[in-house]
Design a protein around this nucleic acid. Sequence first.
DNA 1: CTACATTTGTCCGTATGTATT
DNA 2: GAATACATACGGACAAATGTA
Lengths: 249, 249
Amino acid sequence: MGARFEPVRAVRAYERVVEQVEEAIESGALGPGARLPSERELMVQFSVGRSTVREALRVLQARGLVRSRPGDPNGAEVLPFSPAALHKSMTTLARVAELSLAELVQFRMVLDSSAVLLAARLRTEEQVAEMEAAIAGMRAALASDHDAFSAADVAFHDVIVAAGGNKLIQVCTDVVRSVVLDLIAGKIADAPDRGSLMRRSIRHHEEVLAAVREGDGAAAARLLRRSMYDYYAVHLPDAERSALRALLE
Amino acid sequence: MGARFEPVRAVRAYERVVEQVEEAIESGALGPGARLPSERELMVQFSVGRSTVREALRVLQARGLVRSRPGDPNGAEVLPFSPAALHKSMTTLARVAELSLAELVQFRMVLDSSAVLLAARLRTEEQVAEMEAAIAGMRAALASDHDAFSAADVAFHDVIVAAGGNKLIQVCTDVVRSVVLDLIAGKIADAPDRGSLMRRSIRHHEEVLAAVREGDGAAAARLLRRSMYDYYAVHLPDAERSALRALLE
DNA sequence: CTACATTTGTCCGTATGTATT
DNA sequence: GAATACATACGGACAAATGTA
């Protein structure tokens, strides 16, 4: 095999700055809360112009790694990880790829049900108590406002996913859930007969919890998929529902 | 309910430029291949300075929406959607959240097995033929180089996931797969006894394909999970393997 | 609470290398 | 090859914002 040369892409000055700072942050050399040098200091250290430094900081900010405020004498702040950048790219994907609501819900059914499958094995007693508390919160919010109900619902799923023990699943469900909620914002609050919908949702959650308590992961996963289908199906056109039913066996 | 005022975050000039261009692209007003006005033209239209325009373009470029080259008289080019930005955020997540290889593989097991579950129902005859071709490619690459084998393996999974019909699952498996491959690059090529590993992998793929052909999604999913476990387990410490076995029932 | 020094946000002018015509 | 228009990068300038004495 002859030597294979790769094309030398012209790498911009600001990209080299981004790479170095990124490496420092991702390697842990700069932890959350740490401060970068001021822009003028950075232009000396990297020996580039100020606009180059600024463009690099913009990119780092867009990736959610740092935040800079005007007038702050301490320089840009290194942020703790946030799924904001992931959320942004996924929202973009949803718009330009014209993801259907069904695809998003299907994705949630897959991830959440897998998480509960794992949670049924790994959950602690404390987590079970948290799940109970979340369901109690849903019941309490039945009469009052929908926001509280939704929050308790989210809390339940958060505990489940956390108990599953996979951080990647955790982040992805979080992101996709908020994308879904953005899409159907408003639709839920004035859904027809939402009282009975909420009561049925609570019953489903109780069944899932019971299965988790018994350690029956397969049953818990099946119940959770059905619960999610029931909850979102009313917002879907008939054609899209069938794709979801394929997951209900 | 009283009026709820939200804090007015100071929105930077470049952010408003980003928002407007982003909206134009995501709404489809500017499709892939379209050209943005030149930087000087943009500073007139938005009535902002040059650096403001440039910072906005850098952010848009970081999000994978546009690309600008020096000297191009046509201005920045609107790009077709690419998962590059998603890939970037997920790589960052993997590093700062210290995702284990096991978590990544577990994620793939979940998504790929769900995709094959759907594919068993939705696949066309043409897709079945493509899967066969991919397996043939794996067999052909057995003796020669490992790259060709890996490529054929990827092709098989790509057809499976495409046949599943969920674009979100498709993009996510694609992203996570490349993250995994980056992590274990080199490890595979010089794995002990990789010949028998490859032969076993081919046999597993054939079993999955048979199940897909028969429309037995549950069996196909189970086989695929086991196949993936077998393939990656050798690269995992014992402690991490058990979490994966939880998905093998 | 008021100054003060420093920093960021933004704008402008200029030089250089590059791609298209 | 030459001309033109462009992006890249530099450096200076000023206002607004911020932390501190």
